[in-house]
């Protein structure tokens, strides 16, 4: 089984994507050391300067260094994407496994609620949540995780339904193993490969969602250097100073693409067995 995953790291595409992701994580961790300027220090005399020796990626409308803002922004983006995905996946696995494994009335209730949530586009759900709860880092994280939970529940439930009918689960039941043990020992480990692939894809999607909220002005509030917010405010200067949106946009693009490519490849490997 391990040999299959080694195959993942052999692909040059995956290696490239992985190094992009690691680069951003590295930036996030060491932001204090490597960022050349304070990301929220305003200097109106330098407003909208194009890239130069002093400011490698230029400055924004308030004269803040874009490179520094992107470096600090990666901290926010990565936190949001990892925490939101972790929350969403945990909730999804929890309700999905319970729903699929036990079936019956529990399943019906969870599924109906899931269906209602699925009827609304995930992004709309996130907007509604932030609109009601107000926007700060935590509401953004929770709203992004809520938007991905229903589809997670669906997927996990389907997988759990398959596994619970498998002979080794039936044999464990006949031996008298209790349901919680069976879930943790047999069900979750055996559906984990698919979950991992889905989680990887969701890491990308959640970045997109978080930046989307920021772009609409309901994300992590300014002056925090969030990529989506940067895009949103930079939009007004698109012809006058395109570097305001090119670089944050490129960051979102690279990171999302990298997660998606790795997730796709993982899915491919799992399906090939």
């Amino acid at each position: 089984m391990m040999e299959k995953y080694k195959q993942l790291f052999k692909s040059t595409r995956v290696q490239l994507c992985l190094s992009i992701i690691l680069l951003f994580i590295f930036m996030a961790l060491l932001a204090d050391i490597i960022a050349p300027y304070d990301p929220i220090e305003i200097d109106l005399s330098k407003s909208c300067n194009p890239p130069s020796k002093d400011h490698l990626l230029g400055t924004d409308e308030l004269g803040r260094d874009i490179l520094s803002r992107i470096i600090y922004g990666s901290r926010l983006t990565i936190t949001i994407s990892f925490v939101a995905t972790a929350l969403g996946a945990t909730a999804g696995i929890f309700f999905g496994v319970i729903s699929g494994y036990f079936g019956g009335i529990v399943d019906t209730i969870i599924q109906r609620i899931t269906e209602i949530l699925l009827a609304l586009p995930g992004f709309l759900l996130a907007i509604m949540f932030v609109a009601i709860m107000g926007s700060n880092l935590w509401t953004v994280i929770v709203s992004v995780s809520i938007s991905m939970t229903p589809s997670f529940i669906r997927m996990v439930r389907g997988l759990a339904l398959q596994v619970r009918e498998l002979e080794y689960v039936l044999a464990a039941k006949q031996l008298g193993a209790n349901s919680i043990k069976i879930m943790f020992r047999h069900v979750i480990p055996n559906i984990s490969p698919t979950i991992i692939a889905q989680v990887t894809l969701n890491l990308g999607t959640s970045i997109l969602f978080a930046s989307g909220l920021g772009f609409l002005g309901i994300g992590v509030p300014p002056p925090a250097p969030e990529w989506g917010t940067m895009l949103g405010t930079g939009r007004a200067y698109i012809f006058y100073a395109p570097h305001l949106i090119i670089f944050p946009g490129l960051s979102v693009f690279l990171l999302v693409l990298s997660f998606n490519i790795i997730g796709d490849k993982l899915g491919e490997i799992i399906a090939s067995k």
């Binding site: 044999a171 006949q174 031996l175 047999h186």
Partner: peptide, 30 residues
């Protein structure tokens, strides 16, 4: 527990992610 079962498909009757030792250990624990 006094009534046990052996199924048809040998590939599905053992958890692919567990060593034989763990499969048997689970039975003993139960």
């Amino acid at each position: 527990r006094k009534m046990q079962v052996v199924f048809q498909n040998p590939d599905l009757s053992l958890d692919p992610r567990m060593r034989i030792y763990d499969t048997l250990k689970e039975a003993l624990e139960c």
